[in-house]
Design a protein around this nucleic acid. Structure first.
Lengths: 334, 334
DNA sequence: GTGAAAGCGCTAACAA
DNA sequence: TTGTTAGCGCTTTCAC
């Protein structure tokens, strides 16, 4: 890197480094004429300050980390987009990390970050995450933390989640109203808060309609492993449910695969509904009923909250924020 | 940030800062015993070096930028995944920037980067980009550059692209063999290299089968704007093509929307094929024929190339690398 | 094998 | 209004 430095500018202008620095940060205590001279030359030479020098000095990196389980996922990629939009506006950098649903990787990432690499962290934990020591370490090191979507209750930080209980209840109710009684519930991961809440919503709906809850209708797939289609096929063939409630998009797509393979007609023989942000859900065969989380808004919200924390504009932030999802009924539950 | 510093470690151990530093970088000139002592304490206190201090010192940030037009796009999000996988392995940071298909934004981003923020840049240019001054500035400042997918011919850098000409020819040929003669070609953006090559492939296929090329069958949509469905509907209604070749996924989905709305049957009345990395293409109604780029591999390739450049392992890199796409024939072209 | 000291480029307290 | 100086935390040359 052959960059122009403050020193070089100062030399060319016959000024001191500090004057140049102040002129460029538009300090009010600098003569307007010198300010102009400095800014003119800086522009001419396309001066760009070395960010590391100033980060080192100020202990602020204007960088945040976004830790997500998976990038190529419609929900999370929209979250990224939302986060980006705010950070670009507020002049923050975003480092994106994938935990690949792996706890060890998540710990490695957060450990990496405590060196002061970032001013704050946005995280949606991996499916394996149960302990929170690594997150607490971040806080001890005074790194701001905001959790989203997959949050952990006992963490005393700002948490942004969806109204999973309510939307799950609504979706299950929708299935029940369409005549379904034997609804297979497919979970992704054992311990995630989102999954727990979605399951509770499902159970509440059953209760409301006096349908007994049946343990064996709840099945879990481990999102850190390749999805096993044969296993899913066995489950569907054995249980013969009249509907499947999928907690994540991948599971719904897998169900479509299985139904196509073993020739089960959706929605006549089986109805399918899923949490998903798939844009083409309306064009699937049959079009897929979804519960859509407002991913972009979630991204914007968490970025704003985190930056406010970093800049200590703490206007008494609420600790638990809920953003509502939308149920879209399509042909797969007709 | 209350971080443990080298100085604190040195103090606790009764050693000098430089010895500690050397012990931690595993320098051979340090007594094995002291090395162990130092490393033990560092681990106990969970010491993490301040990256900015070392970046400043070494003029290497171990950070690269990935500039793409759009994040929530199946192709680019898979590229990100590929880049991430290599960078995680080689211990590099990735900063992701979206140009939103906007030239001015792209220039702002690259300008931001010449401060030494990153050691290298991976870029797929915006649809508006025609000039290359901003990219040349990067090179002047000794920042390594690798272009991918949407490359610019006259740049003397490593470029990784798909075999757009060949796959486009193949796809068009496929349509022709299925009896199509009036194939609407939908471009995204006026000047992109990828679009030009795809168009040439289309034209070559027509020529091969002695079909006259008709200018008015080539239409362009501006990807930086919201796609105008009414305009697309008018085009389809007026031209009445027997097939549509879409250069990007969004256009294909829009075509599905229009066909559904005005009740044109795919594939009986019109066939549709598109470049796309949509995972659920096989479940669309009808299932969508696609040309799939190996996005993950492209991501891995460009990350490896860039890091090799940065670390000056320049084993005479080829300047132009082509990675083949795959044509998958499905019902939309039956 | 270890320590002292300089310096990466910047900011900010203090001086003038 | 401008300049001098110290120092952020680290690496590295030179000295011992």
């Amino acid at each position: 890197m052959n960059n122009i430095t403050l020193k070089q500018l100062a030399h060319q202008l016959g000024l001191s480094v500090s004057t140049v620095s102040r002129a460029l940060t538009d300090s009010y205590e600098i003569n307007i004429e010198t300010k102009k001279r400095v800014q003119k030359l800086a522009k001419e030479l396309n001066y760009q300050p070395n960010p590391f020098a100033s980060f080192l000095r100020k202990h602020k990196s204007k960088t945040i980390a976004l830790i997500i389980p998976e990038i190529s996922n419609n929900f999370f990629s929209l979250v990224i987009k939302g986060v980006e939009s705010i950070c670009q506006e507020k002049d923050y950098y975003v480092l994106i990390y994938e935990s690949h649903e792996n706890f060890a990787k998540e710990v490695r990432i957060t450990n990496h970050l405590i060196g002061g690499r970032v001013d704050g962290v946005l995280i949606s934990v991996s499916a394996e995450t149960q302990q929170t020591d690594h997150l607490k370490t971040l806080i001890e090191r005074k790194i701001n933390l905001v959790m989203f979507d997959r949050v952990i209750e006992d963490m005393n930080v700002v948490k942004v989640a969806s109204n999973d209980f309510e939307s799950s209840l609504e979706a299950t109710e929708h299935l029940i109203k369409r005549g379904c009684k034997k609804i297979l519930f497919l979970k992704a991961g054992e311990n995630l808060s989102t999954m727990q809440n979605r399951l509770k919503g499902y159970q509440a709906a059953l209760k409301k309609y006096n349908i007994d809850f049946n343990d064996s209708l709840v099945r879990t797939f481990n999102p850190s492993e390749e999805l096993n289609l044969n296993e899913l096929e066995d489950i569907i063939q054995n249980i013969k449910p009249d509907a499947i409630f999928c907690t994540v998009e991948n599971l719904a797509i897998a169900c479509y695969d299985v139904c196509q393979k073993v020739n089960i007609k959706i929605p006549d023989e089986i109805k399918i509904i899923t949490f998903s942000n798939l844009k083409v859900a309306r064009h699937l065969n049959p079009s897929l009923s979804t519960i859509s989380q407002p991913a972009f808004e979630i991204g914007q919200t968490i970025a704003n909250l985190l930056i406010d924390q970093i800049e200590e504009k703490e206007t008494e932030q609420m600790k638990d924020i809920t953003i509502s999802s939308t149920l879209i009924k399509r042909d797969s539950t007709k």
